[in-house]
Design a protein around this nucleic acid. Structure first.
Length: 568
RNA sequence: GUCCCCGUAGCUCAGCCGGAUAGAGCAUCGGUUUCCUAAACCGAAGGCCGCACGUUCGAAUCGUGCCGGGGACGCCA
């Protein structure tokens, strides 16, 4: 990355590395600085044990020598025992942070890359439940983060609108479907049918055959009755999904279900065959992957001749490669599909497709209920809309209690409720399983979305009352902010957190950074009176700090998909 | 049985490209409102970082094994 693009503390880190690299004759890029735990130890540090070993002296000697030798503008090097600590000058730091955070460019990157991002991907004919929240919210945040870092992102919603489940649904409809119930509440009725199918199929083997027959029809007949049914189901589901996406502020460049690749399936299978990787096993068409270290083969066609999940994902991957020539193709899909992604990447590799390496599965942990597993088949679902509704209702109650005169109460309640749910999901590392706990999801205190929203609203309130025109960092006397280093350090680490979130595909890195910023912000305006502090220049400088704080919180919340009301 | 993920304070988690006395939030106890929103702030208490061995000057962090939890393992997606 070009040095000019570094912002906040990153720019100081680059200078430190360069000076240190010169002093010890090493490539600056190969050096890594650590962030000291203790605030008094400065903003960056290096341990001198290895250098001492190389030189045959002891670490404190090396640290002392380097502390004397190294000169960095705006940074003091200090030896503390075997450590070399670097302290950034408060005034210069404040100036740098304000220059960045008062512009809209703060945290922008230059990682020009074409990135395809598949996420959300709910199944047609089933309501969205809490499990879909993770893929949706993680994917949407990741898309915005990567865009900020310079990626050209293509968001794809890979709807589960194909497969044998639709055979089951059609069979169920033909047996028990009710037009009136469908019109009243399409997805609920379809879910009832789906559940009933699974209840009855064990005692009624004929049902299974009907389902297989129906899916087969769907895949072969162009405009049969079965296809018309499928189309109705799809449209009805999509309408319901749109409501949730609107609420969550999620959008896609393409909503393409698995069916979108339907007419590419045949040529895909032919292509696989021409690559010489297809073989028959127990009547099915498979790709053997034992040489790739995977015991289970990739199933491409069933013994009945119908396609499978992997077939459609292979077709989709190839189609996307042709269409987007991506540098990265990311899939935000639950970790239970780890094997599937290993298989289908390995299958592409076997065909000699080097771009298979650009495919990256971004797994996340399951949501489980405290009382047991969620299961669509058994009808045990926790609807996403229900979770959102309850959060928003509670937010409305909280407003009624804490700020009853707030204008536009309903809309603010919606923002807070959604913010609580979304942030709760994004603050945890995505790989970890989550036990769904109402008490936690509906909490508005502590490390929560509403806490960040509240801090943001407080800033807005101060700025509103200041009634001052836009602040220019060039006119700020930053020496007056020397006493606000904690806040400036927290804000200064924001660009780095953003890059880490992108690199690790981990929105929680950004979420955690925002929590530290909010905490520093609350301490700031607790100790430092802004309006009417008695000094015009001081007030201006503090208003600049509050503006920077408000901007960064607003920006970070926006990237995560958490609304940021100006009052609450 | 094989493979993958997780195991840090009573609870939920951060820290994990190894480094200086292991950090938050919730819950508990105590304090702060004539002062820019108390959805906040301050303080107290709370930890063989699952266990063992290994690598290293140094391990919560890396490796191996074990234990515990979750998941996956050909015609579902």
């Amino acid at each position: 990355m070009l040095k000019e693009n570094l912002q906040g503390l990153d720019s100081f880190a680059a200078n430190v590395k360069e000076a240190l690299g010169n002093a010890i004759e090493q490539e600056p890029a190969s050096l890594s600085l650590e962030i000291p735990r203790e605030e008094s130890h400065g903003e960056f540090a290096v341990a001198c044990f290895q250098m001492a070993q190389a030189e045959g002296t002891d670490p404190p000697t090396v640290a002392k020598r380097l502390a004397k030798e190294i000169e960095i503008p705006g940074v003091t090097a200090e030896a503390v025992g075997p450590f070399l600590n670097f302290k950034v000058d408060s005034e210069i730091l404040a100036q740098t942070v304000l220059e960045g955070a008062l512009t809209s460019k703060y945290g922008k990157g230059e990682e020009h890359a074409a990135t395809v991002l598949e996420f959300s991907s709910p199944n047609i004919a089933k309501p969205m439940h809490v499990g879909h929240l993770r893929s949706t919210v993680i994917g949407a945040a990741l898309a915005r983060i990567l865009m900020r870092l310079g990626h050209r992102v293509t968001r794809i919603n890979h709807l589960g609108d194909w497969g044998s489940q639709f055979g089951k649904l059609v069979a169920a409809w033909n047996n028990w479907g009710n037009e009136k119930s469908f019109l009243e509440s399409p997805i609920n009725h379809l879910l009832e049918l789906y559940v009933r199918f699974h209840e009855e199929e064990t005692d009624n083997p004929d049902l299974k055959d009907q389902a297989k027959e129906a899916f087969s029809e769907l895949e072969t007949e162009e405009d049969g009755e079965t296809r018309q049914l499928w189309q109705r189901f799809t449209e009805a589901s999509l309408q319901e999904f749109e409501q949730i996406y609107n609420r969550l502020g999620v959008s896609f460049e393409h909503i393409r279900g698995e069916s979108w690749y339907e007419n590419q399936l045949e040529s895909l299978v032919e292509w696989l065959d021409s690559c010489g990787v297809l073989e028959e096993s127990e009547g099915a068409q498979i790709i053997d992957l034992t040489e790739q270290g995977i015991d289970t083969p990739c199933l491409v066609k069933t013994a009945h001749g119908t396609t499978l999940y992997a077939t459609r994902d292979l077709a989709a991957a190839r189609s996307r490669w042709k269409e987007f020539s991506f540098d990265h193709s990311l899939y935000v899909v639950g970790s239970e599909q780890n094997l599937h992604f290993r298989q289908f990447k390995a299958a592409l590799s076997r065909c000699g497709e080097a771009w298979a390496e650009k495919i990256e599965h971004i797994p996340f942990g399951l949501i489980r209920m405290a009382g047991g597993k969620l299961s669509t088949r058994e009808g045990k679902v926790l609807l996403l809309s229900e979770v959102l509704d309850r959060a928003c209702e509670l937010a409305a109650e909280t407003i009624a209690e804490k700020n009853p005169d707030l204008p536009d109460r309903e809309s603010v309640a919606e923002k807070i409720g959604l913010g609580a749910v979304i942030f709760h999901d994004l603050k945890h590392q995505r790989q970890k399983d989550v036990v769904f706990d109402w008490k936690e999801v509906l909490s508005f205190e502590g490390d929560t979305g509403p806490y960040l929203q509240y801090t943001h609203a407080r800033c807005c309130s101060i700025l509103r009352k200041a009634n001052s025109p836009s602040i220019s960092s060039a006119e700020v006397d930053s020496s007056l902010l020397s006493d606000s280093k904690e806040l400036m350090v927290a804000l200064g680490r924001y660009p780095g957190a953003l890059r880490e979130a992108g690199r690790k595909r981990e929105p929680s890195a950004l979420a955690q950074s925002l929590l530290r910023i909010a905490s520093a912000g609350n301490a700031f305006y607790r100790d430092k009176r802004v309006l009417g502090c008695g000094d015009e220049n001081l007030e201006y400088a503090r208003l600049a700090a509050v503006t920077a704080l408000r901007n960064v919180l607003a920006d970070g919340l926006h990237l995560l998909g958490v609304p940021a009301p100006e009052e609450m």
